[in-house]
Design a protein around this nucleic acid. Structure first.
Lengths: 117, 117
DNA sequence: GTTGACTCTCACATCCATGTGAAGGTCTAG
DNA sequence: CTAGACCTTCACATGGATGTGAGAGTCAAC
């Protein structure tokens, strides 16, 4: 499919899809015209990129992680032992973020509760 | 206390403390010399700012929220009914962020689990 | 006094995902 | 053949918290 369709199906702008390619996260084929040609699998791939990106992983780290993920039904398999330290670091960072967000939410809930009696 | 001490006790750089003031989050007194003079309560206030900031609230929103919080032991009381919609919106946004982060963490855990057998 | 640590203001830099726009090629339906 | 939608590359803008540095004033200790 071309970039417009992938954009439509993922909700990610063409501009960003090109940016992800520039960052090494996507590698579409090219038509003779120069048009990018994406495969079906890229829909899921973009979804994963979005998940990791929204979790605060930088594109460079995502570029390391993606090649290590292989589809297994709706799950993943992977085998990049060298990446383990970084993966654990990111997971821990995410856990801390969740803790921080929970703290903030509790604070807001307290205020909301006190305000609405 | 002066800015250096507050910075030391909160772990927040003087630069940021001045920035928070510029954003209306802190209102230190001034000495005749122009030096900022902070009160004890500002230590806790800065801590709250950090919590909300790390949860992604913009300083302008924090500026709205802070005046509505009154110390009650280690908790808060508040009474700004007009702020409720925004507070709820932010809380929901935080909840979504937590969901997103959990999804990403699960993804990383799956990869980590698959990699380390 | 003088030195050195601290403070002041102001201004410019950085990060990095994301937007926007210009100038121009490609494809498809009529 | 042509119009219009889609695509290409390139470059510059943005936002918002944060860093950094310059030039100058303040204060405490010796």
């Amino acid at each position: 499919m071309r970039i417009g369709e992938l954009a439509g199906r993922t909700g990610v702008s063409p501009r960003l899809l090109r940016y992800y390619e520039e960052q090494g996260l996507l590698r579409p084929r090219r038509r003779p015209s120069g048009y990018r040609e994406y495969g079906e699998g890229d829909v899921e791939r973009v979804r994963r990129i979005r998940v990791l990106l929204s979790a605060g992983l930088p594109t460079t780290t995502i570029a390391d992680v993606l090649p290590c993920t292989v589809d297994v039904g709706d799950g993943l398999a992977a085998a990049c032992p060298g990446l383990l330290p970084e993966l654990r670091r990111e997971r821990d960072r995410i856990s801390r973020s969740i803790t921080d967000l929970s703290t903030a939410r509790t604070m807001l809930d307290t205020i909301i509760g006190a305000t609405s009696h």
